[in-house]
Amino acid sequence: MGVIVRPNGSYRRALAEALIEAGRRSRDVVVLDADTPKSTGTLAFAREFPERFVNVGISEQDLVAMAAGMAIAGKIPVAAAFAMFLMRAWEQVRNTIARDGLNVKLVGTHAGLSDFMDGASHQALEDVALMRTLPRFTVLAPADARATRELVLEAILSHRGPVYIRLGRDNAPVIYSEGEEFPIGGSKVLEDAVDVAVFSYGPMLGVAAEAVRILRRQDIHAGLVDVYSIKPLDKDTIARQSAKASLVVTVEDHRVHGGLGSAVAEVLAETTPKRILRIGVADAFGASARSYEQLLEYMDLTPERIASRIRGELR
């Protein structure tokens, strides 16, 4: 697979570069932030295109509705905030952006467990559930820096309509090589399913890849699919890969209810019912940790634990 699991990529650095490129390619691109440009990565765009950057201050509801106004005026607004606090404006997103189908790109950074240091208040574990339920929205969750760059550019420059892009912080694995394409609605089969079919997205794809490798050494052959397009979902690939396996597994840094675990369960219930193990966060909150690895350990989401849970389920 050639996957490097150790998080050494940065989603926000990739976002920063993609925003500048989008800004160069289209004069309509404007970027809005709620006083976190240093953290989200929008600062680079602010320096390059100060006249097209808006810091609205610490007010996410205002941020979202203002981006809606910009889209009404024909701009391509990109509004970035910590995923957790962007969800504070979910009602604005629903009633204004989704209802009117406005061409707004929302970027939720620091999603999942990526913001280890800041603790439970900052760790968005519900955003996929909240966003994938909205009509007209596209929901994307790139796994590494290259995927982030491609999907951000595609969402801004090629796709017309509202998009939510879920990003972590500096916990991106390295998975893809240059030139890979990520069409919206697609997925990436990194390894074909045999005994087990594993579906994952975002930073957990790297963790899941490591778990798959551990299982391989124990002679359990698990496939791995990157479900970077949460909505629209690549149902065909999910059904096809699941059909080959005796166990289906989802791995995510999100609640298992409402997240990919639910999304895959919905597809399988409607196509080929299968036993499914949903790995992620259930009825618990995160915690502050000194490192990403320490938080994964606390949340029982290390590659070793994931591999052992899958093995246990197969017995």
Binding site: V30, V54, Q61, D62, V64, A65, M66, A67, A68, G69, M70, A71, I72, A73, G74, K75, P77, Q92, N95, T96
Partner: peptide, 14 residues
């Protein structure tokens, strides 16, 4: 509560 933010966005775009 949303209209003024929307109006601001349209006005700032101008």
């Amino acid at each position: 509560g949303q209209g003024l933010s929307i109006a601001n966005g349209i006005a700032l775009a101008a």
